[in-house]
């Protein structure tokens, strides 16, 4: 048996035991704080601490009671839709803008100050303004994610363009490539791994931001769901929400990483 594989399974389990012990400790000290077993029951169903039979949040994630009361699967789908909506918009605008900034010194001088100033602003600071403009939860959330995602995409795309070696451009010059041929045949192949790094960063931040954004906008979505469970005094569901948000984020990052590697020529044994 592979000793490394054993370590990879056993060591996290040891840490899990420590986490559950600490959690139980907190649950005993803080009044009404859900214990690990309460939380397990709340998630998968069973008999709770008041001897009531309950249906777990995860036992029926697909239920639809009404527009405002849907299973956790739909909450996550709603959040993902907003994340990918804003993310796609950021890609459509960010990649061409990044290419322009990377290729033209003038474009860089023109846009750089604004990127530097707006990049450190928490996207949530924009949210009230966007809510005022759109008067619509979905559009507000999507545009917040758009603002979140666009900076890493622009910056990494521009960086990718700038890392095109002078030698490759000389080859293009000798062959008299048109500007379009330069972009398609030289610049994009070099820049694509950088663009995907930017996308991966963007998606990770977008997933962080959507939870907070939905807490503010309300309606539907995993962020609002967590906040709603706080208002319902269902603290165990907050913990379930945190774990689910974490798992979905991990899944998103893994998929994005695989896609990024697929398009990265340096990761195919061709350095």
């Amino acid at each position: 048996m592979n000793i490394d594989l054993v370590k990879r399974i056993v060591l996290p389990l040891l840490v899990l035991i420590v986490i559950i012990q600490v959690w139980s400790g907190i649950a005993h000290t803080v009044e009404d704080f859900p214990t690990p077993s309460d939380t397990y029951v709340a998630a998968f169903g069973g008999i709770n601490e008041f001897d009531d039979e309950v249906v777990g949040v995860l036992s029926d994630p697909f239920y639809i009671e009404n527009v405002d009361d849907k299973g956790i699967f739909w909450q996550i789908m709603e959040s993902l839709k907003r994340v990918f909506g804003g993310f796609a918009l950021a890609l459509i605008i960010g990649v061409p803008l990044g290419l322009l900034i990377g290729m033209s010194k003038n474009a860089q001088y023109a846009f750089d100050p604004f990127i530097q100033i707006f990049k450190p602003v928490s996207p949530l600071a924009w949210l009230p303004l966007l809510l005022f403009i759109f008067q619509d939860i979905n559009l507000t959330a999507i545009s917040t994610i758009f603002i979140t995602s666009i900076w890493p995409i622009i910056i990494n795309t521009a960086l990718g363009v700038k890392s095109v070696s002078e030698d490759y451009m000389n080859v293009a010059k000798v062959l008299q490539f048109t500007p379009m041929e330069k972009v398609v045949q030289i610049i994009l192949p070099v820049a694509i791994p950088f663009i995907f790094t930017g996308m991966r960063l963007s998606l990770a931040i977008a997933w962080l931001v959507i939870v907070a954004a939905e807490m503010l906008t309300g309606g539907i979505g995993i962020g609002f769901w967590i906040w709603d469970e706080y208002n319902n005094l269902a603290y165990h569901n907050i913990i379930i929400g945190i774990i689910i948000v974490g798992l979905v984020g991990f899944l998103l990052d893994t998929i994005m990483g695989l896609i990024a590697n697929y398009f990265d020529y340096t990761k195919k044994g061709r350095a």
Partner: peptide, 16 residues
């Protein structure tokens, strides 16, 4: 530059 004057670069400059 033009293709009638082809250049072999020191560091080969092949597209990787």
């Amino acid at each position: 530059p033009g293709p009638e004057r082809a250049v072999v670069f020191q560091n080969h400059s092949l597209l990787p």
